[in-house]
Amino acid sequence: MIEISKLNAWFDDNHVLKDVDISVPENGSFGLVGESGSGKSTVLRTITGLVDDWEGTITVKGNQLGPKRDKDFYRLVQMVFQDPFGSLHPRHTIDRILTEPVNIHGLGNSDARVVEALKQVGLDNAFRFRYPHQLSGGQRQRVAIARALILEPKVLLLDEPTSALDVSIQAEVLNLLGRLRRDLGLTYIMVSHDLAVVAHMCDDIAIMNHGRIVERATAEQLAEGTLEHPYSQQLYKAAGGYDRAVVDTFVDWD
């Protein structure tokens, strides 16, 4: 479904993606983990057309992407952004935020779609006429997921989709994402800093550091901690919780 090869990206002269290769079969779920600033979001943002300066090839459902994305692309591929506050218009009601993409794509039936999307993410209808700042962090993230789902895409690019959520809603959202993938045949690329989330949700995982994929693993390998690269091992240790002595052994990998 998604084939990315030799992807490089730059912000001015900052070379942030270096020869990134990713391949995700239809209905697959690919996990990206790694250092903060290593380029995980940039991979997703490049696919959705939010990064100008890139080289390499990106193919989605057999179509190689050029510099611009058209409307059809966004019916096929939707992204849930990392920062739900920044990505929701502060002066629009939730209703308007959800209705807008339906209208832009001329899908009609927006009322029923909004009700359905809110239901899918477990938000009560009472939230419909609130503004983003009147919601808790977790409630806002569910709105962001609802907005992506409302166009019934085939590919979801999920940038830390549950990192702003408490664990009970995270469980519901992860189950929801799992169910949507099974029922609708969706394909995911999911960025998360939570190794357990990625092990739970994804089949194949890539570990990024400094713009490069330093290691690939299956969910099983990740679960067993059989990782080779020293950065991956450090990441695995860190997932075990806070331990002052372990923190002191951490080093920067260049």
Binding site: V167, S168, A171, E172, L174, N175, V197, H200, A223, A239
Partner: peptide, 18 residues
């Protein structure tokens, strides 16, 4: 809440819901 946490066992089954 503790039960809802995904575990590092690579198991893709649904998580318990609160």
């Amino acid at each position: 809440l503790l039960n809802c946490l995904p575990k590092m066992n690579g198991n893709h089954d649904d998580l318990p819901i609160l």
